[in-house]
């Protein structure tokens, strides 16, 4: 991910999204995370859309031990593919717009600002058969879990041949049976 500014300045049009695991700031071009010192520049999608997709991604695969940046990396990949004219761009923009409408109708605020996870999940359950939801979930199941940086958090050790395999590194070390 590109760190666009280590101490992001927030312009006047920005707003603070209050419900994230770490508060995210949306500027005219980017989504910033001041506490984790990262930012994603929205290349093709609206920054608000990127922000909503990050929220939605966590709601699809909620891991409380994962910081927002892992979800942001996944969404950045989707943003990169949603180029002008690509069907993906319309799927994501329209999908988020409709999700926000549904959130406003039910809770009076856009999706990313709905307070409880179960409330947001209910909004997602209502659309889980839709191409929008399936596109995001289908991308995420690879783009989230295939990030090498998060494997250690799950105890997965990844590549092993260069380390001589596990023959001397605990292939049979189970001790509680």
């Amino acid at each position: 991910m590109r760190l666009i500014d280590r101490t992001p300045k927030v312009d006047r049009r920005s707003f603070l999204a209050s419900t994230g695991a770490a508060a995210l700031v949306v500027t005219s071009t980017s989504v910033l995370c001041p506490t984790e010192s990262w930012g994603v520049e929205a290349q093709n999608l609206k920054p608000e859309t990127v922000r909503t997709l990050i929220r939605m991604s966590r709601d699809i695969y909620p891991h409380d031990r994962l910081a927002d940046r892992f979800y942001a990396v996944a969404v950045k990949g989707m943003d990169g593919k949603a180029t002008e004219g690509a069907p993906l761009k319309a799927t994501l923009e329209d999908g988020v717009a409709k999700l926000d409408e549904a959130a406003k109708a039910a809770h009076g605020v856009p999706y990313a600002d709905v307070g409880w996870e179960h409330q947001r999940v209910a909004l997602l359950r209502a659309i889980e058969g839709d191409p929008f939801f399936q596109t995001v979930r289908g991308d995420l199941v690879v783009s989230l879990y295939n990030q090498k940086e998060l494997w250690p958090i799950f105890g997965y050790q990844g590549e092993s041949a260069s380390q001589g395999g596990y023959i001397k590194r605990g292939f049979n070390d189970i001790d509680w049976l």
Binding site: Q157, S160, Y166, I167, F171, I174
Partner: peptide, 9 residues
């Protein structure tokens, strides 16, 4: 309850 690390080996 406890680790297995099934992927080893």
């Amino acid at each position: 309850e406890k680790p297995v690390h099934m992927f080893r080996g």
